[in-house]
Computed example of a mutant assay.
Amino acid sequence: MVAGKSQRVVVVGSAGRDLAIGMTSLPEANASAPIERTMERLGGKGANIAAGIRQLNPECSVSLIAVLGVDRAGEAVLEDALDLGIDTACVARRGETSLLVDLVDDSAERRILEQVSPEASVREEDVRSAAMVLGEARVVVLQLRQPVAVLTRAAELAPGAVVVLDGGFDGAVDSELAERLLTRADIVRANGEEAEMLAGHSISSVSDAERAAADLLNRGPSIVSLTVSGSGDLVAWEGDSHFFPFGDEPVVDRTGAGDAYVAGLVTGLLRAEPPRELGRRASAAATTAVQQFGGFTRFAERSRVDG
């Protein structure tokens, strides 16, 4: 879809402080358990996606539109993003920085705790302030946990960009706005729960995912990627589809796998790869993520995704 060495990717989504806590087993109620290891750094779906894209495409300019608090935690996250080479000029500062806690045991069972302030959502004024950056974008990733009206405005400010939607619409979303955003989207990606939100019915098999993907393709996007929970990811496009089953690699922590998947998708887009190859690359990126502790995926061994 897009090609060229000089690219700008813009990610609109959440950012915060991510604290991963590993232990042998999660404690029962009113019990305790020793902590085996911890990792603390930038997190949130928007920040994780931006970090993944930047690592996989160091030649690419990656801008993040998100919100961090006016506090020490916000400063630490901002420094982490800058160290990764992410353009943070469009990161707004207000309220308190979101805290995301990932509790995971040796069996990869996890609990996610979130402390997110009302000020943490991206607002329309944040998007308007980033109009120049959006106008230069070749790819724009929109995280659907943000207000749909704001995301729609971001898409409108990026007329020449390939638009990637990540997530699903909940029941409170205005249906007209949701359809408007779907019409503008080029790619839609959703995990198992989010895919069911988009489809309006359960997705427990590949055939269920194929049916849901066909409906979404008729509503605007040219590529749809949906997860069949516990099985794998379906990538569908006009006239064809391919299912990528989950591998047999040992799972350490599933947190951040979806964000890595999106980073892989965007990497394929920047290389103008066909849909089947996009899915292969995205699946490889997610596999890298689940073999690591914490929601931040380290793509130091790029050959695992580029091969």
Rank of each mutant, 00 (worst) to 15 (best):
R17K: 09
L265K: 05
L100W: 03
G268I: 03
A260K: 02
A209E: 10
L134W: 02
Q292S: 05
E210C: 12
V173T: 15
L113C: 15
T255V: 12
R302L: 11
A47H: 04
R298H: 09
F299W: 02
L151I: 03
S204L: 09
G160D: 14
D174P: 14
A263D: 06
V101P: 11
A300K: 04
V262A: 08
D71Q: 15
A158L: 12
G85P: 13
R72C: 00
V62P: 07
L182A: 05
A236E: 05
A190D: 10
A214W: 00
P221L: 08
R93K: 15
A257E: 08
S117H: 04
G200Q: 10
A50Q: 10
A300F: 09
A92H: 02
R280C: 01
Q143D: 15
Q7M: 15
M23Q: 10
R219F: 10
T183H: 10
R110N: 14
A33W: 03
V251N: 10
I187P: 01
T88N: 12
S205K: 00
G16V: 05
L144E: 08
A29L: 15
R128A: 01
V252P: 01
T287I: 00
D71F: 14
D186K: 07
S202A: 15
D87M: 00
L113N: 15
R180S: 13
G95R: 02
V164Q: 03
V104K: 07
V164Y: 06
Q143R: 08
V164F: 11
